[in-house]
């Protein structure tokens, strides 16, 4: 009995398998280590943060930093935290509103345009598509100076509408590319059958093609949402106040205050990565699909 067990163990633990286990551990350390370290630091008492050598676990875990950030404690308890909450709340709302609006605007335009680029013949199709996709390589700052003047003229600086439009222009090329490749990967026969039955092109698009392309649409929405959520250089210029300033611009400002609090910065960072974390854990399949289709299948 025990002989058989040890035989099985020695079979299981070949050098190749041990090596692979070590590799997996290293990959996990590289990918999750920095996130763990931020979480670890965010749960420490301020005095434990400055221990040398640093603690691998919080010696006295506390949620104080979070409750300060989220305004859950009295002003007397933590003056720094309590004054941060209104800004943190505004920045969180701004991040969510611009990410959702930018994503919706982008995928609606990209779904319709992507279908036209994939299936319909019209003059200038290839040129327009080529030009739009080429802007993937145009750095944002190449257009930002005239864009800034344009937005000032239209009164759209520091407004949700202005940011949403800029994000649409920034992320449409990738979204169009993705949607077009998803449409191209669908079998044409269904659409052709519907047309032979006398269905109009638009009916076919909304009732047959879009439902089939739903995984692609979700993948495109996820990639767009995560791209807007992480934007920094655009709001750095176009969101000067808390009317639209997102978390990505607010959190580094915490770091440049004189009362530098690493626990606070780490806690704010952990809260800012919650939405992406949820997406990666629960919608991973769609995300991978979007990323690989983006590579130009």
């Amino acid at each position: 009995m025990s002989e058989a067990l040890s035989l099985r163990l020695s079979e299981a633990l070949t050098p190749a398998k041990i090596g692979k286990g070590v590799l997996i551990a290293l990959v996990l350390l590289w990918s999750l280590g920095p996130i763990y370290w931020a979480l670890n630091s965010s749960l420490m008492q301020p005095v434990d943060l400055t221990a040398v050598p640093p603690h691998a676990f919080p010696p006295a875990p506390t949620l104080k930093t979070y409750s300060g950030l989220l305004g859950l404690q009295g002003a007397a308890d933590n003056a720094t935290g309590a004054s941060i909450w209104p800004h943190f709340r505004a920045a969180t709302i701004n991040s969510l509103v611009t990410a959702v609006a930018g994503t919706l605007g982008t995928i609606v335009v990209a779904a319709l345009g992507g279908y036209a680029f994939a299936r319909l013949r019209f003059p200038g199709r290839n040129i327009v598509f080529g030009l739009v996709v080429a802007t993937l390589a145009v750095p944002g700052y190449t257009v930002i100076i005239p864009l800034y003047r344009l937005m000032i003229k239209l009164g759209l600086v520091d407004t949700y509408l202005g940011l949403t439009l800029i994000y649409m222009s920034a992320f449409l090329p990738l979204a169009l590319w993705l949607m077009r490749s998803f449409f191209l990967s669908l079998p044409k026969s269904l659409e052709e059958a519907a047309q032979i039955d006398g269905a109009s092109r638009l009916y076919t698009l909304f009732r047959i093609v879009l439902p089939l392309a739903m995984p692609g649409l979700i993948a495109t929405a996820i990639v767009t949402f995560l791209s807007v959520w992480q934007q920094f250089s655009v709001p750095l210029v176009f969101s000067p106040t808390y009317a639209t300033k997102p978390l990505t611009v607010m959190i580094p400002e915490l770091a440049s205050r004189h009362d530098l609090n690493f626990g606070l910065i780490n806690a704010a960072g952990i809260l800012a990565i919650l939405p992406p974390f949820v997406v990666v854990v629960f919608l991973n399949r769609f995300l991978v699909q979007g990323l690989t289709a983006g590579a130009g299948k």
């Binding site: 943060l49 780490n266 960072g269 800012a272 992406p276």
Partner: peptide, 28 residues
């Protein structure tokens, strides 16, 4: 493992930079 590997891509580069700058803090 794929989910763990992808996670860093989904994190805003600003947050990711701040996390690393804390890890590379000269003293702490």
């Amino acid at each position: 493992l794929l989910a763990a590997i992808i996670l860093p891509w989904a994190i805003p580069s600003v947050v990711n930079s701040l996390m690393w700058s804390w890890m590379f803090n000269p003293t702490y």
